[in-house]
Design a protein around this nucleic acid. Structure first.
Length: 329
DNA sequence: AATAAACCCAACCGCGCTCTC
DNA sequence: AGAGAGCGCGGTTGGGTTTAT
């Protein structure tokens, strides 16, 4: 037995709203409010619309002080940073941007912002792969290159932006430990200004979001929530940077920093892994098969990621540069 | 100029959560 | 306590518009 429909689907109008419908809805709500009952609202007004549709129309379009389009660079940065930190929790992101709706931000991210970043990444990857000495030497290298490009698509995007915007705020972050940075990254940092006001703002929001989540009541790993936080990225994508075999790049005790760089707020991770961050490689087991449905594709990518470790440092640096470039454009 | 492809965004859908009875 | 109603959210879709060929 399924859930009862919220309205009589046969007798409600669907599709775009007419100016008359907009006027009716707006006039009524401005005069009487919603009455706390969206389902009953259309009947009161005489609209043949579902209550949910009325609510959506009001919140996303008719409500006063709604802004459409024309996102500023600062708004871009906030959206990127929050997306990296908390994933696709559009309502929370929208709450930080007055006049913006979750739907608007979601559309903006999916249709423009993401592509803007990925487009530049693709170009960078193309340059990277075509550079002298970078050509794949054999079939397996080509496969690695493909995997790298796949990995770069979204998980690394969050990683890049995260390192740029949050690294300085995070005492445990890889990006706060210059001793383990590639030299070129240090040189680049010297030549850049960091936006600390924005950093504080983002850090505050991500801490709030993490604090809202009560993982103490759930001692088992909430992989579904972790996946949500990763926001749809496959476990294989996310495994990049978590690879225990990257010891040429990071000391074992610094794996914690790498985890933090993969898209989680510090507080979030503290709650996900309250006792497991002692740095031992064995503690990365949560990411493998134990308690987690790792698909064969994921395993393949894990293996592919493992083969990338010789180039990881260089790629991490290039990713960092690209993130900086993107955000300062 | 015609057509296809890509882009964009409003709106819909369904699920989970909260509240009320 | 638990069932049902309503709300809020994120994912997805449909179709109009723009751009490329």
């Amino acid at each position: 037995m399924g859930r009862a429909p919220c309205c009589d689907k046969a007798n409600v109008k669907k599709g775009p709203w007419s100016p008359e419908e907009d006027a009716k809805l707006k006039a009524y709500i401005e005069k009487y409010g919603t009455g706390g009952n969206w389902i009953a609202l259309p009947q009161k007004i005489g609209l043949k619309r579902c209550g949910k549709s009325c609510r959506l129309r009001w919140l996303n379009y008719l409500r006063p002080n709604i802004k459409h389009g024309g996102f500023t660079e600062e708004e871009d940065n906030i959206i990127c940073s929050l997306y990296i930190s908390i994933g696709s929790r559009w309502s929370i992101i929208a709450a930080q941007l007055p006049g913006r709706t979750d739907n608007d931000i979601k559309n903006y991210w999916n249709t423009r912002l993401k592509k803007k970043l990925l487009g530049r990444r693709k170009q960078a990857n193309a340059n990277r792969l075509s550079a002298p000495g970078q050509e794949p030497k054999d079939a397996s290298d080509e496969e690695n290159s493909c995997d790298l490009q796949n990995l770069s698509s979204s998980a690394l995007e969050r990683l890049q932006l995260h390192m740029h915007l949050q690294g300085l705020q995070n005492p445990l972050s890889f990006y706060n430990d210059p001793a383990i940075w590639p030299k070129k990254m240090i040189q680049t940092l010297h030549s850049q200004n960091q936006n600390n006001d924005l950093m504080h703002q983002i850090s505050s929001i991500t801490d709030q979001v993490a604090a809202e989540q009560d993982y103490n009541n759930s001692p088992l790993m909430k992989m579904d929530e972790i996946e949500n936080s990763i926001n749809g990225f496959s476990s294989s994508e996310s495994s990049f940077g978590l690879n225990p075999d990257q010891s040429d790049f990071l000391e074992p005790e610094q794996n914690t920093g790498i985890q933090l760089s993969s898209g989680f707020a510090q507080a979030e991770l503290d709650q996900y892994f309250p006792t497991e961050l002692d740095g031992s490689r064995d503690n990365l087991g949560w990411w493998s098969n134990d308690g987690f449905d790792v698909s064969s594709a994921s395993l393949n990518s894990w293996n592919s990621a493992a083969m990338l470790h010789d180039q990881t440092s260089e790629y991490m640096y290039q990713d960092y540069v690209m993130a900086s470039y993107n955000l300062h454009q």
